[in-house]
Design a protein around this nucleic acid. Structure first.
Lengths: 105, 105
DNA sequence: TATAAGCGCAACTATTTGATTGCACAAGTT
DNA sequence: AACTTGTGCAATCAAATAGTTGCGCTTATA
């Protein structure tokens, strides 16, 4: 069972959960109200996100508040960072120039 | 069948493919030599990446060179961007301060 | 023209995923 | 003490995924 951050954000529901929890810590029930699925389905997503350390539990009485733990998201940022300059317009123009030089030789 | 960028980068082999192709356009055969799977398996990943517009075909004779198309990767950057400030150390310290203020009222 | 090389497509398989339903259990409430 | 609420866990199921094998088409090469 793969359990990495990339897998975690692959599901649109999980991305939505991250978006909600990032704004405010919530209980599974409160979270589930935002989706058209069962509480269990949401709870499973929460479990996966917790295992990936994107969420963190905080039990208060019989309620469990899930908090957003942003550190792990950095792994994704680190993956994309090297490509960032490649979608920059100025670099694309440079790329065209480089290709012209290459095709001339 | 979900076919978005987040799904595309969820697989470690596909992330490796992206890394290789970003450095240099390659044919499926050349690419497959880097992995311990069959050419077909790699070819399937290529197909998915192409459908997501992360790769672009360029046929040269009987060979097909796949190029990296960085634009789509921006979707991922856009998703993480809002969280970026949250893993910054300075923000975390601010967060602690804010929580202290909140708990006092 | 016969053969080989480079690829994509189709069929099939095992595994994983996302979701549902039902149950158990601890923490509050009456 | 009995009932309700908030959760997690287990079993089950359909669909998607990642991989393999076999086939056929097109483009080079002998």
């Amino acid at each position: 069972m793969r359990r990495d951050v990339f897998q975690a954000i692959a599901d649109p529901t999980r991305r939505a959960i991250i978006g909600l929890i990032a704004l405010q810590a919530m209980t599974p029930n409160a979270l589930a109200e935002h989706f058209n699925t069962t509480r269990q389905a949401v709870s499973k997503h929460i479990k996966i996100l917790t295992e990936c350390q994107i969420l963190k539990q905080e039990q208060i009485g019989r309620e469990i508040y899930y908090h957003f733990e942003p550190q792990k998201m950095k792994e994704i940022a680190d993956f994309i960072e090297p490509f960032r300059k490649m979608w920059d317009t100025r670099f694309n123009q440079l790329d065209i120039v480089l290709n012209q030089i290459k095709s001339k030789k």
